[in-house]
Simulated scan of single mutants.
Amino acid sequence: MKWSEICIHTTEEAIEPVTNILYEAGAGGVVIEDSQDLQQTFLSDEGSEYSLDPADYPIDGVNVKAYLPVNSFLGETVEEIKQSVNSLLLYDIDLGDGRLTFSEHNEEEWATAWKKYYKPVSVGEHFYIVPTWENFDPEDPNRKVIELDPGMAFGTGTHPTTVLCIEALETHMSKKAEVLDVGTGTGVLAIAAAKLGARKVHAVDLDQVAVQSAKINVKLNKVQDVVTVSRNNLSDNVKGQYAIVVANLLAELVIRLAEGGVADLLQKDGLLIASGIIRPKKEQVKEALIKSGLHVIEEMDSGDWIALVAEKAE
């Protein structure tokens, strides 16, 4: 069977919405080639460090590649993708040049080739994030291993926004804390919280594919006694109070989360860790957090990405 590879050259800010559009269009797989990944150091199966091949990545920005079956509906599907991607401009999302290109591949080529982009990597002070298909022997026995199978969900745990969240969890989470993970994706942040000693983690995502992926990864990492995963739109109808709410979302969704009363879900002195914020939108997000009754106590950054740690104000 032949597959058409659709490559959209865009920005980091647009990765998640573009990816969602491609999956909704019926993509049989997605690869994300982020030029910023070239700045990271990865680990081989033997634990030695190595760098990625620049030839596999764009000079700047991000390539989001989707795979669609070559059939009589392909032309219509591509037009729908173009319209949906362009409509993101209405939400003030920077698409970059949004250039779209095509190529064809046999099924055997794309079914395994995408795995070369996902390698073991050390994250924060406490973790290795390792794809399930890698035979990995940890060099540092003090680091905890998070096994991930990205499946059809967005994220492999190594994107700067995820790393910032993990680093913030390492700094601020107390043992036996109860944590809410909003927009869990593959479940990596919920798993990290559990491995850092959380008593209970409730992970939610609107995308049913992400929910299923997170459930699989939770079981892979043997934290199902701590982590529960369910489908939910942001924090709507979530009950209880939490020591930490972690939200790795687009800036617009962090603002919506704040306006939706996330402060009410925090215990006294509870913290919101919000990431996925592109630098030009930092002040807009901070204003929304302050209006919601939160006080920003820390800013973290990685490239163009910002994470904010906000405390419930009394």
Rank of each mutant, 00 (worst) to 15 (best):
N71G: 10
T112K: 06
I93T: 09
L90Y: 08
Y117E: 00
K82W: 03
A111I: 14
L90K: 15
W114T: 02
E109M: 05
E107N: 11
Y67N: 00
S103Y: 00
V64G: 06
A66M: 08
T77C: 12
E109K: 05
A113P: 00
A66G: 15
S122H: 10
H105P: 00
L68H: 09
E79T: 10
L95S: 03
E107G: 09
E107F: 07
K65D: 03
E109F: 03
K116D: 00
K65A: 10
D92G: 04
S87E: 10
A66L: 07
K65I: 15
A66V: 04
G98T: 10
Q83W: 01
I81N: 02
P58V: 10
N106K: 12
P120C: 08
S72N: 13
N86Y: 10
V123M: 04
F102N: 01
L68G: 09
L68K: 10
G75Q: 13
P69A: 08
T77N: 09
G61A: 08
S103P: 05
L89Y: 05
L88A: 04
V70L: 13
S122D: 10
K65Q: 12
V70D: 09
G61L: 05
H105C: 10
L95D: 02
T101M: 02
G96N: 08
P58L: 04
D60C: 07
V70M: 11
E79D: 12
E80K: 14
